Structure formats: C-alpha cells, structure tokens
Simulated assay, not measured.
Amino acid sequence: MTIPDFQTLMRPVLEHLEDGCIRRSRDVKDAMAEEFRLTDVERKAMLPSGRQRTMDNRVGWALTYLTQAGLVSRPSRGQVVISDVGRAALSVNPGRIDMKTLESYPSYVEFRERTRKAPVPLPSVAVAPIAEATPSDLIEQAVSTNRAAVEGEVLQSALALSPTGFEDLVIRLLERMGYGKAGSVERTSASGDAGVDGIISQDPLGLDRIYVQAKRYAEGRTIDRPRIHEFAGALLGKQGDRGVFITTSRFSTGARQEAERINARIELIDGPRLAELLVAYGVGVQVEQTVTLYRLDEDFFDTL
C-alpha cells in the first residue's frame, strides 16, 4: 500500500484516539503505519530533505490540523488525546474527515484566517489555486500555513506553563527581541513586586525602565479596562511611564481604550500577537527545514 496523504489519515487517527486514552504522538505514528500495512521500505521512506520519515510527517500534519480544529488536544509535550468535539465528529461524519470537514469548526476557520494574515516579518501571502501557482507561490503558501499552525501550537504550550513559567517565557522573548541589551531584563514577581512581573532596564544604571506584566489566562478570557487601570497604577507607583502587558488571552475594546487614554505608554500584546512574536524570534520553536529556489542567470549566459 502507498503512503497515505495527511487528509486520508485524519479519520483513522481520530478513531485510534477514540477510547480517550492519552497517547504519545510517536505511538500514533507507529499505529498508523500498522493500520495502513506499510512495508519496511515505505516506513523508512524519507522526505526529500532527509530530516524526517514521510509517514511521520503526514501523521504529524493530520494531528496538527485536527488540533487546530479542536478535535484533538495536546495535554503535555509529545502527547495527544481526542476531545469531546473530536468524538462527536466521528459520529456526525461517518465517512471521510478532511480539511473540508474541518471548515465547519470555528477554531479551524480562525486558523485558516491566520494563514492569510501577514506573518511576522514575512509579507502577506495570497492563496492561489495549485494549478495557477508558481513554485514560489507554493512555498510561500506552505510557509504561511506552517507559521499559522506553529503559532497555534506555541500558544497552547504557553497556556500549559505555570504562571512563573509563563513569566520566564515572556522575559526570554523580550531578551531575544533585543530589549535590555545595554542593561537587563529580569522577572520580579517572585520578589512580591505588586503589579509588575518584570523590569527592562535599557541602560546599565537602570534609569530608563520599561515595566512588564505577564498574565497567562485561558484563551476565552478577556482582559478588561480595570486590569489596565491597575497596571497603570503600578507604573505610577514606580514613577514609570512605559509598560508592556502581555497575555495569552485577549483585550476588550475598553481595555485598549484605557491604554490609549492614560498618561503613560502601555503596549498591549494579546495571545495571537504573542504567538507571532515567539515564532518570529525563534523562542520555543526550531527550524525544521529550509528550501532554496533557483532561477536562470541570464546575465551569465550573455557573457559566454
């Protein structure tokens, strides 16, 4: 049997997880190789990059899309489990489950919309039909889809951290972004510094400071005006006029209006923006593969 594509794998993967047991992603990949009765040669077949087995890659992408749709969740590193939504999907979709099926799930639609947004720092990518797309178009589309998927996964990983772990993640990101190069970036919540989780000292003497608040909240929770007002009060207490409020959730319109109204500059970074920055600055992610495209050097041939 030939190696199945990732959409063909979606339903078998869900069925394998239907009993509700938490399984390692590695075990799911092995189970799918057994399910489709792959030969040893097919099991060992590698992607052109030589970095990963083809079957592992396709099962991995099936899991990624199912996770983005909310049919599968990742309770911890390298583990997957079916959700109630996923179990219901098996009942209401007796046949094939593929990307068309996933379009009925709001979280998947949101994921697809992220693939059409301008990634940081790449330009906006317009999705073209495969038959009309150039190799460059296809790579840009693949990069955009990959970025959106990884952003979703990195945000879920951030949500799984402890409050102090999330604060450490934020500090690591700010350092990677170049803040505190001439001074320091430090976490302060452990010292009981009320209302402030971190301080960025932009100069060696700490005279130029930016105060940080990092809150790991569920995605469905909204941060409203009073929390921004409290943070502004903490800045005032420290005679500061600049702050960054970073969260895994979202800010209400009132919260954004409050940040603009008060006599201090407060930057608000919500969950989607945080995920973009983590991926853009390489925090919590690894480069899996790079691709080089070539074009004819007409000038070279003109000199011959």
Results as ranks from 00 to 15, higher is better:
S144C: 08
E186P: 12
D137T: 06
G152S: 13
G180I: 06
G183R: 02
E153N: 06
P135A: 02
T134P: 07
I171F: 08
V196G: 09
T164S: 09
I200V: 14
S144K: 06
A160Q: 15
L173V: 01
R187A: 10
A190T: 08
E186K: 14
A149Q: 03
R147P: 15
G198C: 07
V150D: 00
F166Q: 02
E167R: 14
T145R: 12
Q156N: 04
A190N: 04
D137Q: 05
L174T: 09
G178L: 02
D168E: 05
L169T: 12
Y179Q: 01
E175F: 07
E186D: 11
L174M: 05
G195A: 00
A148G: 05
A149M: 06
A158K: 04
Q156S: 05
L159P: 03
E186I: 14
F166A: 02
G183S: 07
P163N: 10
D137R: 02
V150Q: 04
G165V: 08
Q141N: 10
L138M: 07
I199S: 03
A190W: 04
L174Y: 10
P163F: 05
T145L: 14
D137H: 08
E175D: 10
L155W: 13
A182P: 05
G192P: 02
S184M: 12
F166D: 06
L169K: 01
R176E: 09
I199T: 08
R176Q: 14
S157M: 13
L161K: 07
Q141I: 15
G183E: 09
G195V: 02
E186G: 10
F166T: 10
V154W: 01
